[in-house]
């Protein structure tokens, strides 16, 4: 019997997700043994046309990481969707937009202008910007188009499963493969991680007081965190209560508060809004001035509460940005 075909692909991402696959360590061999990898640009050489030539649904599963920003990413997402039985959004960027989606606070023009004109570390006297088509030395290269906004994978194509995290942990990845190969898959649309918030597996949970009553907020670089006490009890924003568990409380056991990369539980529509309503309701001050003072400790609310989830949130993007197209 031929081995099941599997593809890995990356879009707008940092490469961390690819690391995780490699981080499976010995387990990767177990996986490789059982499957036939038909596409993995970070590790092996394949051509798009090879994929295009494959029969539809011939790949059992594609693990796609990264958000969708360019026309090329969009095309590949559509292509891989067609070729795969299961399309799995792998990691925070594919699932929620991730860090790249923070760019949805700015227009395409603002981004291009900064990067090709205003950036202080840049020398570009002619203010040249990348072009979709251009001719040079008799060649006519073709570049992908930079879309208006960053989208999650499921805002572009139908997605079967999600593996959360920035990056996902090897443990969850292996469990996903086991489920996939063992045919023990949960209902379509599931996030392959526990559906309970991080506090559940956080060792500091017992130290959270019943009435946390925030008087100030500090960021991790502003104070030495007590390595045993609940971060919220220390006045540090921890996304744990609003974030799915399954990471093994990696950050909090490393003395860093949770930043929310596993995304919300299945019951939540907007992770940022949820943690906001919880934190703000627990601010001790009840007068405007006191509230303002306390909240001044969170200078970048979008970056704090929507660090990974902006594209997938109810906010999604700056209000005047069109969802599709390229701004022309």
């Amino acid at each position: 019997m031929p081995k099941p075909k599997v593809a890995f692909y990356w879009c707008a991402s940092c490469g961390g997700c690819e690391e995780t696959v490699v981080d499976l360590a010995e387990d990767i061999l177990g996986v490789v043994e059982k499957v036939d990898i038909v596409l993995w640009p970070v590790a092996m050489d394949f051509k798009y046309k090879d994929v295009a030539a494959m029969p539809d649904k011939s790949i059992v599963a594609t693990l796609l990481n990264g958000a969708i920003r360019t026309s090329e990413q969009e095309e590949l997402a559509v292509l891989l969707r067609r070729k795969s039985q299961y399309l799995i959004a792998y990691g925070a960027c594919a699932q929620l937009g991730g860090i790249p989606a923070l760019a949805n606070q700015f227009s395409r023009e603002q981004i291009l202008k900064f990067n090709y004109e205003d950036c202080p570390a840049l020398v570009n006297e002619k203010k040249t910007r990348p072009q979709i088509h251009f001719e040079e030395a008799g060649r006519a290269p073709h570049l992908p188009e930079f879309r208006n906004v960053v989208r999650t994978l499921d805002q572009v194509v139908d997605v079967d499963f999600y593996i959360p995290g920035c990056p996902p942990t090897p443990k969850l990845t292996k469990a996903a493969f086991d489920a996939l190969l063992g045919g023990k898959l949960p209902p379509k649309g599931s996030v392959l991680a526990p559906d309970i918030a991080l506090c559940d597996e956080c060792e500091r949970k017992a130290t959270k007081p019943t009435n946390v009553a925030f008087t100030e907020f500090k960021r991790p670089h502003q104070a030495l965190a007590d390595p045993t006490k609940c971060f919220l009890a220390q006045g540090m924003v921890c996304m744990g209560p609003a974030t799915r568990s399954g990471c093994g409380a990696a950050c909090t056991s490393g003395n860093m508060p949770c930043t929310g990369c596993f995304g919300p539980t299945s019951r939540v529509r907007d992770q940022g809004a949820k943690i906001l309503s919880s934190l703000c309701a627990n601010v001790e001050a009840k007068d405007e001035e006191g509230i303002r003072k306390t909240l001044a400790g969170i200078p970048d609310p979008v970056g704090t509460f929507y660090r990974y989830g902006l594209a997938k949130s109810i906010l999604r993007r700056k209000v005047d940005l069109a969802m599709t197209g390229n701004g022309h």
Binding site: I196, C199, D200, T210, N211, V212, P241, R267, A281
Partner: peptide, 28 residues
Amino acid sequence: ILEDECSGCKSCIPLCPYTAILFDEGRK
């Protein structure tokens, strides 16, 4: 409260104006 889903973060407890929410120390 959905028993299996509650993470025991205690965020809700001080907010109830009728002090209807309690924390079960056994089940956390």
